[in-house]
Design a protein around this nucleic acid. Structure first.
Length: 880
RNA sequence: GCCCGAGUGACGAAAUCGGCAGACGUGACAGACUCAAAAUCUGUUUCCCAUACGGGAGUGCGGGUUCGAUUCCCGCCUCGGGCACCA
């Protein structure tokens, strides 16, 4: 811990003995006091607006972007990791001479603001603006530079008017539509709830039992883009494989066929979707989702119709999870379908495991080759037929599903014309036959559903739609935008969407007929706001258009996007969808908004996870006792055991204030980046922090030690060694930052620092050489510890480092070792070492190796059958 | 259940192309300094045997390829993550 008061060291040259030297008793450490230094440079960077950039200026552009945060008000060290690594990258890119754009804004609409309004009576806008101010201060105290002239907040009408404009464009193109959807409905609050707001089947706010209701909602037709969103992933070579895979799974592309099955009772056919048409000879029954529209007719004549209808009602009321947990349930409808290939009548069942949203809501059940169908058949005693066998084997129906999980590589049996064909060929052949006979067609289905954007909330972008008694749904004319949120709205938390109560807002006149109209009171999902903000940063103050397309085409796609893995699916998928929609509207020339993506890992404390994502921190609830163990309820409603020490008011959080107060922001920055590879989850350690502080102090102390040197002479071996390390470090640090390996970049800088300490403590006296190494260290260290390096740089008599200094160039000639150590092995066992010139001939190295006394005893009476020389590494003598 | 990813000292980790395993940093132990403590500086710190010189083993487990494997291949085990009745 530093002393309370910082004292400048006296004549340090007298006492500083270097890393390996001894120190006189009067020694006291030259602690640097980060507070005034950091305040000074933060003010200077802000005053000089160093990060502001003109997007029309020439130069090699680099657009980097941190996901804009939800302004929750408080940031902890886990958030810090995200922004600190972005800032380190930004400073590095700048020093490399790139025109780097690094903007920041606020994902400022959302539920927490509204809850704060209900709880504390403060207007959501006021609460949000206060939080934004707090967070801006925190960014500044971390030394993070953003181009604040481009700041945007999604709750600003100047921003959300373009949300509304975009909605209207999508509406024109048929990509925004109103439709019915099953939603969670709280009858007491009279509002729709997000899935996350339903806890154990009850409303999180009032505890009432949540119902499933079919309500009219607004959707974006993202499913129209399913195929492009899926195939576009292939081109994203700079995205983590993990994220691409998650997106692929989410989109869920399945290639198969729609096939018609005749239903005698209906006098027409029903369509099913299958990915395995080759198993159609084994389709022993058909299963429909209980919600299937033809179900009422099919059960009309059933003897116990009432019981079935009751069961259907129960299934419909269950959440997806409950539906699965209740196991497989079904009822026979009493009707049959005709298998188009075997010609047999097969029973039509209803099954809770068939989902109405996917495919056609109807399946052909092949119990012989599908686990789910098999279980259902066993449960209800339905017949099973085997129509595919593993090559060279004969399994029976009972063991098929367990014994042979690899179902893609079989051979069809008892399947008419495709019998004997291996599965891939059988699929192609049966598809041809289905299409020739006109009973179906090849088809691709996706799991992806349309994006429900309606929210019955106040704090969001109003959907610009009017309902006219005569004209029906009427879009608000562009000239009337923005539709602004009314400010005088009561927040009671009890009566559904507060907007419905704002008479002046709801009452409107129809722009077509002039008659009475009612304004849409739903607001948009906040993911709409964040789906295109990356383009708005290019022309954030343009009030005439959504953005400046030519400039956007020059600056986009984003060269480096940085954010949490929790947005691997929704945010990134929506942004990719909207980008394509903008492309199809002719507004942008590219389809992918983010060329390179990086997901940083979370920082944990005491071994468990911060349950909140980095965009929406909300303080957590009270401690509860469960079986004598203290728990806290997270905002995600999981109960998390409380272990170990932590902050009193917040769960598992390290606030940066104390840390910065004590050690400075530079220490936090260095430690945060050093702690672990940035993509990995990392455990925060208070002890580890001091390592960063010690390192920076040592760097600080070098200034005086280097200045005290007096030698002006020639370079000797010590000097060449130090400069070699400096040039090697330049090469290492650059390539490591390029690959986001900030932890090893910092360890390389620590090595250089240690080398300088060794030089100073080991008899080095050449001031010029030490200074060169030292200044190299400072420049390389700047992205990680900007304040202290600027301060030293200035004291060394230079202009501002970030603004005027460039990234150092590594001289390859300087990096070459004078002598290299080669390891000698005999039959792979380490038997000695050898120092040779770096350009030594292979034959000479082998000769010396054989002459080495450590090696010779092992060669006694043996014949050398082979010598392997790895240049600069080893010589291996293989003997017999 | 399906699909990914990861297992290296007491701890966070490193090893960029198959070539000295453990860089760098914590922590611990010892020494210097101090009346003393803290801080700082210096040294030691994978494990086993040995006072020492030195020797042996070692990157989750079992096998394989190779002169040589943390790295490549096959089979397990454990942990983490994603999806979860998607036909």
């Amino acid at each position: 811990m530093p002393p309370a008061r910082w004292q400048p060291p006296p004549d340090v040259s007298r006492w500083y003995g270097g890393r390996f030297g001894t120190l006189p008793r009067t020694f006291f450490m030259a602690f640097y006091d980060p507070k005034p230094i950091e305040a000074k440079w933060q003010k200077r960077w802000a005053d000089e607006r160093v990060a502001e950039i003109d997007v029309s200026a020439p130069g090699q552009k680099y657009y980097m972007l941190n996901m804009f945060p939800y302004p929750s008000g408080d940031l902890h060290v886990g958030h810090g990791r995200n922004y600190i690594l972005g800032d380190a990258l930004y400073r590095y890119l700048r020093m490399r001479g790139l025109a780097a754009l690094n903007p920041m804004g606020w994902d400022a609409f959302g539920l927490p603001a509204e809850n704060a309004a209900i709880k504390r009576g403060v207007h959501p806008g006021e609460w949000t603006r206060g939080n934004i101010e707090r967070m801006k201060k925190q960014f500044r105290s971390w030394g993070i530079l953003y181009d604040w002239s481009r700041e945007i907040a999604s709750c600003d009408p100047a921003y959300y008017r373009w949300n509304q404009w975009l909605f209207l464009k999508l509406f024109e193109k048929g990509l925004a539509y109103r439709g019915k959807a099953p939603v969670n409905w709280c009858p007491s609050c009279r509002t729709v709830l997000a899935n996350e707001q339903v806890v154990e089947g009850r409303c999180e706010r009032c505890g009432a039992s949540v119902e499933q209701r079919d309500l009219e909602q607004w959707f974006f037709r993202i499913t129209d883009y399913a195929d492009r969103l899926d195939s576009g992933l292939d081109a994203l070579t700079e995205w983590p494989e993990k994220v691409k895979l998650m997106q692929r799974n989410w989109i869920g592309k399945s290639v198969g066929a729609d096939v018609e099955f005749e239903i005698p009772l209906l006098g027409r056919s029903l369509t099913i979707f299958t990915t395995r048409p080759d198993t159609i000879y084994g389709a022993m029954f058909m299963v429909l989702a209980p919600e299937h529209p033809d179900v009422p007719k099919l059960i009309e004549t059933h003897t116990d119709r009432a019981a079935i209808e009751k069961w259907i009602g129960e299934v419909r009321n269950k959440s997806a999870l409950e539906r699965q947990e209740s196991g497989k349930e079904g009822h026979f409808t009493g009707s049959t379908a005709i298998n188009p290939f075997t010609g047999e009548p097969i029973p039509i069942w209803l099954g809770n495991f068939v989902l109405p949203q996917y495919g056609t809501g109807a399946i052909m059940a092949v119990p012989g080759h599908d686990q789910r169908d098999f279980e259902f058949a066993k449960q209800y005693g339905l017949p099973i037929r085997v129509v595919v066998q593993p090559p060279g084997e004969t399994l029976d129906a009972a063991t098929m599903n367990e014994a042979w999980p690899d179902k893609e590589s079989g051979v069809s049996v008892d399947s008419g014309s495709i019998s004997g064909m291996p599965t891939p060929r059988a699929i192609a052949a049966i598809l041809d036959e289905i299409e020739e006979r006109g009973i179906g067609k090849r088809s691709i289905r996706y799991r992806l559903r349309d994006w429900l954007i309606s929210r019955q909330r106040y704090w969001g972008t109003p959907i610009p739609i009017l309902y006219c008694e005569k004209c029906g749904i009427v879009p608000v004319p562009e000239s009337d935008l923005p539709v602004e949120l009314p400010s005088d709205v009561p927040f009671t938390g009890k009566e559904g969407n507060p907007l419905e109560k704002a008479e002046s807002f709801v009452r409107a006149s129809c722009p077509r007929c002039g008659g009475a109209a009612r304004r849409e009171t739903d607001t948009m999902d906040t993911f709409v706001d964040s789906s295109w903000y990356w383009a708005r940063f290019i022309s954030p103050r343009d009030s005439s258009r959504i953005f400046d397309s030519p400039a956007v085409n020059r600056w986009l796609p984003v060269d480096q996007y940085i954010g949490g893995i929790e947005h691997a699916i929704l945010h990134l998928l929506y942004a990719r969808f909207i980008c394509r929609a903008l492309h199809d509207l002719g507004l942008v020339s590219f389809e992918e908004p983010f060329a390179r993506l990086f997901n940083q890992g979370m920082i944990t404390k005491e071994g468990f996870r911060d349950p909140e994502d980095h965009l929406s921190w909300v303080p957590l609830g009270e401690v509860e006792q469960r079986d004598g163990v203290p728990f806290r309820r997270g905002t995600d409603h999981r109960l998390i055991p409380e272990i170990g020490k932590m902050s009193k008011s917040r769960f598992n959080v390290v606030p940066p204030d104390d840390l910065i107060d004590r050690y400075g922001a530079d220490t936090e920055r260095v430690y945060t980046l050093f702690i672990a590879p940035p993509e990995k989850e990392a455990a925060w350690s208070d002890e580890g922090v001091v390592g960063g502080y010690r390192f920076l102090n040592r760097v600080w102390a070098f200034a005086d030690a280097v200045a005290a040197l007096e030698g002006e002479g020639e370079e000797g071996e010590l000097e060449r060694k130090l400069l070699r390390k400096a040039h090697q470090t330049i090469a290492t640090v650059g390539s490591r930052i390029d690959r986001f390996e900030f932890n090893t970049a910092i360890s390389a800088l620590m090595e250089l620092s240690n080398a300088l300490g060794d030089y100073l403590g080991g008899g080095g006296v050449q001031r010029k050489v030490a200074l060169e190494a030292y200044e190299t260290l400072l420049r390389l260290l700047h992205p990680f510890a900007p304040h202290v390096t600027e301060e030293i740089w200035q004291r060394l008599g230079h202009e501002d480092l970030l603004v005027t200094s460039s990234w150092p160039e590594a001289d390859p000639a300087r990096q070459v070792e004078e002598e290299i150590t080669i390891v000698i092995q005999v039959n792979g066992k380490l038997r000695g070492q050898l120092s040779v010139a770096p350009d030594a001939e292979e034959a000479e190295i082998v000769r010396q190796a054989k002459a080495n006394d450590k090696v010779t005893p092992h060669l006694e009476g043996k014949e050398i059958v082979k010598t392997i020389v790895v240049p600069g590494r080893l010589v291996n003598l293989v003997v017999r």
